[in-house]
């Protein structure tokens, strides 16, 4: 038996240092700060109506990025995100309406309640995989809506609840269009910062490993149950905070729009079109889809969903891996043809 190690076979690639230089590691943070400042600068150029539209784009950047933590990084098809959005909205409404707590305290409580609820239901739910996880989380969201609808004494039932925002009854004064623009911008920036931190941390590696192969990840020493539950709890907490801010912005909240499944679906579509499992993808996806949707709604009111649906179909067929992932692969392999791309998943 020879005593030398197996010789390395010849390679064409050069050996690269294990860790990227500091300027490459800090580039995303610089971009995030620049983007946030750009958002503040943009505000001076917008009318009130435009401010609302862009504020909604920020909201979807936050929702899509939060969804991406469990749906993109971890690969669990979370079709119940809106349940936590609605939960956050109603916790805030209840706290402000019944308990007269300040909005800022309600915002924190909304995040906590959404997170705790996620940690509670996450343990059994995250044992499910694929479509089963998708349906079970959808069921939780629909169930929450029904509970809110059928507790009229606390929630006002189908008649909704109006948060007091003016006069002596108001625990916190309404922030105004300018104020909400900044609030949603900061929430979006904070959620993206969380995603960026997770993506580059040990947790990010653990989530990606769980996504790729749970059995192998467990054999590598990753506590898969804890990893998944933490990601789910974090995503739900952030979603609850977004729901809370949205509730205060629209003041009058009702069960159906607060638990509207199409909010989840939009977030999923934004992530998938932008590029799941990347930090940049959900941001680009949210901006593109929300902008397109608004534009179509204004210009083609009747055919709005038809055109949007058709665009989604075309995008998914041409770019099944999402824009950012496609671009990354294409630059690496120098193959930019979209038709090649279609062949990947064709039967």
């Amino acid at each position: 038996m020879s005593t030398v190690d197996a010789p390395a076979p010849p390679r064409t690639t050069t050996v690269v240092p294990a860790v990227a230089p500091w300027w490459r590691r800090s580039a995303p943070w610089v971009l995030l700060a620049a983007g946030t400042l750009g958002g503040i600068a943009l505000q001076t150029q917008l009318y009130t109506a435009q401010e609302r539209v862009v504020g909604t784009v920020f909201m979807f950047v936050a929702l899509a990025t939060a969804w991406n933590l469990i749906g993109g990084f971890t690969g669990y098809p979370w079709f119940g995100q809106v349940g936590f959005f609605g939960l956050g909205a109603y916790v805030t409404a209840l706290c402000m309406y019944h308990l007269h707590l300040s909005f800022w305290l309600s915002l924190v409580l909304s995040g906590l309640v959404a997170g705790l609820f996620a940690a509670f239901v996450g343990v059994p739910l995250l044992r499910l995989k694929g479509h089963y996880f998708a349906i079970a989380t959808l069921g939780v969201a629909e169930g929450l809506r029904e509970v809110v609808l059928n507790l009229p004494r606390a929630t006002g039932g189908g008649g909704g609840l109006t948060i007091p925002t003016l006069g002596p009854d108001a625990p916190t004064r309404w922030l105004g269009n300018d104020g909400f623009y900044i609030l949603f911008l900061l929430i979006a920036a904070a959620v993206v910062a969380v995603a960026l931190a997770v993506s580059r941390s040990r947790a990010g590696y653990a989530l990606r490993a769980v996504n790729q192969d749970e059995e192998a990840a467990a054999a590598m020493g990753i506590n898969t149950t804890r990893t998944k539950t933490l990601a789910f709890t974090l995503a739900a907490t952030l979603t609850g905070v977004v729901g809370s801010a949205q509730a205060f912005r629209i003041q009058a909240i009702y069960p159906d729009p607060s638990f509207d499944t199409s909010i989840t679906e939009l977030a999923v579509i934004m992530v998938m079109i932008g590029g799941a499992g990347t930090v940049l993808g959900p941001i680009l996806g949210a901006i593109a889809v929300q902008y397109m949707s608004e534009w179509l709604r204004e210009n083609y009111t009747n055919a709005h969903t038809f055109i949007l649906g058709a665009l989604i179909i075309v995008t998914v067929v041409l770019l099944p891996q999402g824009f950012v992932n496609y671009l990354g692969d294409a630059v690496k392999t120098r193959r930019f043809s979209l038709l090649d791309n279609v062949r990947r998943y064709r039967l």
Partner: peptide, 30 residues
């Protein structure tokens, strides 16, 4: 069972990271 979406280095980094003791991303990559 490689993690197909990661580079070879990242595959091994994951293993080096979760040994029961805490290792930073940096140290694990080395």
């Amino acid at each position: 069972k490689p993690f197909r979406g990661m580079t070879v280095l990242d595959n091994v980094t994951v293993a080096a990271m979760f040994t029961g003791q805490r290792h930073t991303v940096h140290a694990s990559r080395q």
